[in-house]
């Protein structure tokens, strides 16, 4: 049976259908879960897609963190379930304290919307498991607040623990240490600014996002079998 992926929709989320289509393309069953629900339904993995949850008012992700569904997401993550936040979803996960650090306005106040080359620098996450270190992927970025920051002690911990899973080859936003994606210590919660769901077909310029999403689906299936 296919892995089941719950795709969370906040008011203002706008990448949920892309994520559902991309997840189906890599063999998963995907369904939408409204932010007001307290239950994720049957899920082997959770994706928080991009967009502008709650209008990005206050700070991106600041209000989404208090949506009822986030308690279920936090519980799912605490039980070891794979959780991935893409772009705005990454911002939500940092605001919710499920990932370290924060995302601030891009260097130079520049909105970036372009293909980005990223390198897999750790396979200790549900999004990069099984991918050879050093693998270079082309995945688009599309954000205004994607500059990753954290204090030096946290950065050292992330580096030592293999929690920096993706780095930009050309830093588009001023992120510390060129960080494009990080995982929690256990590796089951991952956030990234690039949009793998927008790179699932050569027609879109790249199909590299499939490698990440396939890894997630395999991990989700593994959780289910366990």
């Amino acid at each position: 049976m296919a892995a089941r992926v719950a795709v969370v929709v906040f008011p203002g989320t706008n990448c949920e259908h892309d994520v559902v289509t991309a997840m189906e393309r890599v063999g998963a069953e995907a369904s939408l879960v409204w932010h007001g629900d307290r239950d994720l339904g049957p899920a082997d993995a959770v994706v928080l897609p991009g967009g502008f949850a709650h209008g990005d008012y206050l700070r991106p992700g600041a209000l989404a963190r208090f949506s009822p569904v986030m308690e279920a997401v936090a519980r799912f993550a605490a039980e070891g379930g794979p959780v991935v936040g893409i772009c705005n979803g990454f911002q939500v996960l940092t605001e919710a304290g499920l990932l370290p650090g924060a995302l601030v306005k891009n260097r130079g106040l520049r909105f970036v919307c372009a293909p980005a080359r990223v390198r897999v620098d750790s396979d200790r996450s549900v999004l990069t498991a099984g991918l050879p270190l050093g693998t270079t992927l082309s995945v688009p970025v599309n954000h205004f607040s994607g500059s990753y920051v954290c204090d030096p002690a946290t950065l050292a911990r992330l580096r030592d623990g293999g929690q920096v899973v993706l780095r930009y080859l050309e830093n588009p936003n001023g992120s510390v240490d060129d960080i494009a994606g990080v995982a929690n210590a256990a590796g089951n919660v991952v956030g990234l600014m690039p949009h793998p769901e927008r790179a699932v077909d050569a027609l879109l310029g790249s199909a590299d996002g499939q490698l990440l999403l396939r890894a997630l689906v395999q991990q989700a299936a593994g959780v289910r079998a366990a």
């Binding site: 600041a62 940092t94 924060a102 920051v149 204090d151």
Partner: peptide, 8 residues
């Protein structure tokens, strides 16, 4: 808890 993100 809400108005400021203590990380930044």
């Amino acid at each position: 808890r809400l108005l400021a993100n203590p990380v930044i």
